[in-house]
Simulated assay, not measured.
Amino acid sequence: MKIRITIGLIFFLSISTFSYASRIDTLVVHSSVMDKDIKNVVITPDSYSEKGKAFSVIYLLHGAGGDHKDWLKKAPEIKTYADFYDVIIVCPDGYKTSWYFDSPVDPTMQYETYISKELISAMDTSYNTKSNKENRAITGLSMGGHGALYLAFKHHDIWGVAGSMSGGVDIRPFPLRWEISKRLGTYAENPGNWESNTVMNLVHLLDGKNLKFLFDCGVDDFFYDANKGLHEKLVERNIPHDYIERPGGHTKAYWRNSIKYQMLFFNDFFKANTYETQID
């Protein structure tokens, strides 16, 4: 694996006055599985320069049509959150419509392997990270919300906490949208690919102990029914989780509000595990 680096809640009432000094890098990782270079935004907090210090890492996945710069455009305050919570934030380029699968029909689209193995390894090699699941989080919006839960449900040995904002947690109702058929084949000809790669059908991978997660969706969002359905399925199976629904649609304003709560959720998880480690 080749790696190249280019320099490139919170108390909600006080966050707007918090002065950030975080640094933004572009980490370029060569994906062996796809044989191409992939760009990733990496935001390090001001305290990163402190000698001998290691940091928890939060991975933020973009939605359909986005790229590694998408989160900085939609919610530039994530630079502040990196400082405020003293964490590293990583925004991978998941291609415009990868859906973060390892595509069974397109070998050039292997983003599950890229995110969960190649990028994790690159981050832990290139940055001062706390390289364990207790200090690693993943979330995203829309396609990225699906991707975050998809990856966390399948790899809860890698991520200890996860989230989703307006996530497409059930892709089956959308067989003609967002190029999903290019990643899985058409639903009519490849129903098994769709059934086995939708978050809704991955609940059986959860034991209620190895992953803490939060997901939310606006009641006016076209993914609302899917998110509510996932919540109900988890309740039926007695799988602990946090679920929030609030007014709002599939909009930047909704995600800018949502990420504040998810950052707080992740911070609580990191702090709780730090305390438990100290006690042990």
Score class of each variant (00 low, 15 high):
residue 152 A to T: 04
residue 152 A to K: 05
residue 152 A to M: 03
residue 152 A to F: 07
residue 154 K to M: 05
residue 154 K to H: 02
residue 155 H to T: 00
residue 156 H to N: 14
residue 157 D to G: 13
residue 160 G to C: 05
residue 162 A to M: 03
residue 163 G to D: 11
residue 164 S to E: 09
residue 165 M to A: 09
residue 166 S to T: 01
residue 166 S to Y: 06
residue 167 G to A: 04
residue 168 G to K: 06
residue 169 V to L: 15
residue 170 D to M: 11
residue 172 R to M: 14
residue 174 F to D: 09
residue 175 P to I: 02
residue 175 P to N: 04
residue 175 P to A: 02
residue 176 L to Q: 11
residue 178 W to S: 08
residue 178 W to K: 01
residue 180 I to E: 01
residue 181 S to Q: 06
residue 183 R to D: 01
residue 186 T to E: 05
residue 186 T to A: 03
residue 187 Y to N: 01
residue 187 Y to P: 01
residue 189 E to T: 05
residue 189 E to C: 00
residue 190 N to E: 05
residue 190 N to D: 01
residue 192 G to V: 01
residue 194 W to Q: 11
residue 194 W to H: 11
residue 195 E to T: 07
residue 198 T to C: 11
residue 200 M to F: 15
residue 200 M to G: 10
residue 201 N to Y: 11
residue 202 L to D: 04
residue 204 H to A: 12
residue 204 H to T: 06
residue 206 L to K: 11
residue 207 D to K: 07
residue 210 N to C: 00
residue 210 N to Q: 08
residue 211 L to V: 03
residue 211 L to S: 03
residue 212 K to R: 12
residue 219 V to F: 12
residue 220 D to M: 09
residue 220 D to S: 15
residue 224 Y to N: 08
residue 224 Y to Q: 08
residue 225 D to G: 01
residue 226 A to E: 15
residue 228 K to A: 06
residue 228 K to V: 14
residue 229 G to M: 11
residue 231 H to M: 08
residue 236 E to L: 13
residue 238 N to I: 01
residue 238 N to Y: 00
